[in-house]
Simulated scan of single mutants.
Amino acid sequence: MQLRVPFLGDGVQADQPYPAQLLQRAFEAAGRSVALHPAPFALPQARALLSLGRQEGGLDVLWCLTSARREAAARPVRVPIDKGLVGWRLLLARPELAARLAAVRSLAELKAFRLVHGLDWPDTQVLQDAGLKVTTSGNFDAMFRQLQLGRVDAFPRSIAEIWNEAKRFEAEFVVVPEIALSYPAAVYFFVAPERPDLASTIEQGLQRLIASGEFDRFFLSQHQSYLQLAQLNHRHVLPLHNGRLPPQTPTERPEFWFQPL
Rank of each mutant, 00 (worst) to 15 (best):
1 M>W: 11
3 L>W: 15
7 F>K: 09
7 F>S: 06
9 G>I: 13
10 D>V: 13
10 D>C: 12
13 Q>M: 13
15 D>S: 09
16 Q>E: 11
18 Y>R: 11
19 P>H: 13
19 P>K: 12
20 A>N: 00
21 Q>L: 14
24 Q>N: 04
26 A>H: 02
27 F>E: 11
28 E>T: 13
29 A>T: 08
29 A>V: 02
31 G>W: 07
31 G>C: 09
34 V>P: 15
34 V>C: 15
34 V>M: 14
35 A>R: 13
35 A>G: 07
35 A>V: 11
40 P>H: 11
43 L>I: 05
48 A>V: 04
51 S>M: 01
51 S>R: 11
51 S>I: 03
52 L>K: 05
53 G>N: 01
56 E>Q: 00
59 L>I: 09
60 D>L: 08
66 T>K: 07
67 S>Y: 08
82 D>W: 08
82 D>V: 10
83 K>H: 12
93 A>K: 15
96 E>V: 12
100 R>M: 08
102 A>E: 09
104 V>H: 00
105 R>V: 12
107 L>C: 05
114 R>L: 07
116 V>W: 06
119 L>M: 13
120 D>N: 08
121 W>Q: 08
122 P>T: 03
125 Q>D: 12
126 V>L: 06
130 A>G: 05
130 A>T: 04
132 L>Q: 07
133 K>F: 06
135 T>D: 15
135 T>Q: 15
137 S>W: 01
139 N>W: 09
139 N>V: 07
143 M>N: 07
144 F>V: 05
144 F>A: 03
144 F>P: 06
147 L>V: 03
148 Q>N: 04
150 G>N: 01
159 I>R: 10
168 R>T: 00
172 E>K: 02
173 F>L: 05
174 V>K: 02
174 V>P: 01
176 V>D: 05
178 E>A: 03
184 P>L: 05
186 A>H: 10
186 A>S: 10
189 F>N: 00
190 F>N: 01
190 F>R: 04
192 A>M: 02
192 A>E: 01
195 R>D: 15
195 R>Q: 12
199 A>P: 08
199 A>S: 10
200 S>D: 15
201 T>A: 13
204 Q>R: 15
206 L>Y: 04
212 S>V: 03
212 S>A: 03
215 F>R: 02
217 R>W: 06
220 L>Q: 02
222 Q>N: 05
225 S>N: 03
226 Y>E: 01
229 L>E: 07
233 N>C: 07
234 H>P: 04
239 P>G: 00
241 H>W: 02
245 L>R: 02
247 P>S: 06
249 T>K: 05
249 T>Y: 04
251 T>R: 13
255 E>I: 11
255 E>P: 05
256 F>A: 14
259 Q>E: 09
260 P>A: 08
